[in-house]
Design a protein around this nucleic acid. Sequence first.
DNA 1: AATTATACAAACAGATACGTATGTTAAAAC
DNA 2: GTTTTAACATACGTATCTGTTTGTATAATT
Lengths: 213, 213
Amino acid sequence: MRRTKAEAEETRNSILNAAERVFFEKGVSTASLDDVAKAAGVTRGAIYWHFSNKTDLFLELYNTVNLPLEDMIARNVVQPGADVLCYIEKSAGDWLDQLAGDEHRQRIFTILLRCPYGEDLLPVLEKQQEVDDRHTVMLDSAFDTARSEGFLNGNWTPQSATKALRWMMEGLCSEWLLFGRRFDLASEGKDGLKRLFDSFRQTPATAEALAAS
Amino acid sequence: MRRTKAEAEETRNSILNAAERVFFEKGVSTASLDDVAKAAGVTRGAIYWHFSNKTDLFLELYNTVNLPLEDMIARNVVQPGADVLCYIEKSAGDWLDQLAGDEHRQRIFTILLRCPYGEDLLPVLEKQQEVDDRHTVMLDSAFDTARSEGFLNGNWTPQSATKALRWMMEGLCSEWLLFGRRFDLASEGKDGLKRLFDSFRQTPATAEALAAS
DNA sequence: AATTATACAAACAGATACGTATGTTAAAAC
DNA sequence: GTTTTAACATACGTATCTGTTTGTATAATT
């Protein structure tokens, strides 16, 4: 029974939504296409009509959330004049808020964390690395601006600050997502960010006091 | 052809070693018991003799490295008198050295990071959480000693320091293990630890200078 | 109005992978 | 020395899962 174009797009989306839920609950490799089909209320025929196989379905699912992901990073552009460290901190805090409030994003991230990157999903891994690398470069330059403007404490270099921030964010999100969200991501995360950025910062008073001692 | 007890234990170990390699390369869920058997130079009959199924094999594999894991944590006991922060930092650095130098441990950790914790491997996840919780408690008390002895900087609490350290370690190791060991874990990790612990520390001179300002 | 192409469902064939059952050999036990 | 039993290998049946093929009803095309 042929559906209209809009209906077809609707089933395609329902398949993607079902795949997200099923992949999240059972894992990408153990979930079968029949599981996804049943969860979407269709048969495997519909899936094979819209996607070529499970890997393709996973890649399309990844692409649906890929753009907002990169948007998130693009928002990290440095606005001249303002305190760069405050800006980076706020940017990271916003990221946490977004993740904490968006179950869709949470499921996708969890799937990506747990998925077995074996040869066929290699493009996903490479894209992840590419995004991470670009993010690292932007953070590096932002922290370098902070340093040249005298905001960065002496025992941090731009590169070390970038790494510390990235590692902390990664560990924070990993523990929250993989271990059952056992704490408040936004509040505890932003508290940690505040303390870390306080150690990044160097108030003029402190600098003078240290120089005088 | 019945083997002697020592030979049987040998094949059992070879199966565990093969399982470690195969699970690491192909992922736990996609790897078949026949893959493990071929890698070990035996048939599936041998595996089913020594283990009841794949989940059991995985659990046994997990148990073989579980003891050294907990040893690592037990080494974190607080030695009174010495600088507690230095002790924690050295302990974390030692952990990184161990991981960087032990491919066996690297493979196990990677398997644990990527494995799909779905119902049957739930005990593994729970044990991980239990170990993590004990580790957190020990770190909390250690940082609290540091605070009561005046070593901890004012903008860090014992709990926040514990979390920052744990998140940084987790993010550091995750990125190194899951993304192809693209940097030097020991040197970069210990450098990050040094800077983080410098921000934990509060030298008497700094404290006085701050109080005078 | 007849034809065609679309959007699926249903059926089919092939390949694994699993668990078990059975066979086989040599070490232990007696 | 015979029996037993441990330590596997081999063979078997079965349940998925996958990819393809075929069927089919209806929207779109003409």
